[in-house]
Amino acid sequence: MGMSKEDASNPTVAVLILISVILTSLGVYDKIAQWAGAGTAVPVTGFANSMCSAALEHRSEGLVLGVGANMFKLAGSVIVFGTVAAFFVGIAHLLLGTNGGH
C-alpha cells in the first residue's frame, strides 16, 4: 500500500483494536479468553478489551462518572507503569549522554 513498515504499524494497531472492541461488544471476547488465557490478554487487543469491557459495564452509571471515569480502571495501570518506566529509561539515556541515539 506504499507505506513504510513504521507507518503501517499504526493502522494495524487501530484495526486490531477495532476488532477487539467489536468482539467485546458481541460478548465473545471473554469467552475466547477463558480458552486462550494470555493469548488474548497480552496482545494489544487485550488492552482494548480491558477498556471496552469497563466502558460497557459502567455505562449504567452514566457517561461521565460511569464510562469516562471507569474506562481506565484496568488499563490505567499499564499506562501508568509504562509511562513511569519510559521516563526513567529516558532519564538514564540523558544521564549517560547517549541522548536517545540507539
Binding site: 467485546t24 461488544s25 460478548g27 471476547y29 471473554d30 475466547i32 479468553a33 477463558q34 486462550a36 488465557g37 494470555a38 488474548t40 490478554a41 487485550g46 478489551n49 480491558s50 471496552c52 469491557s53 469497563a54 460497557l56 459495564e57 459502567h58 484496568l74
Partner: peptide, 14 residues
C-alpha cells in the same frame, strides 16, 4: 463479577 472481580466482558481467564 462486576463488584468483586472484573467487568463481565473482560477477558480474564478463571
Amino acid at each position: 463479577e462486576k463488584q468483586f472481580r472484573y467487568p463481565t466482558e473482560y477477558g480474564s481467564q478463571k
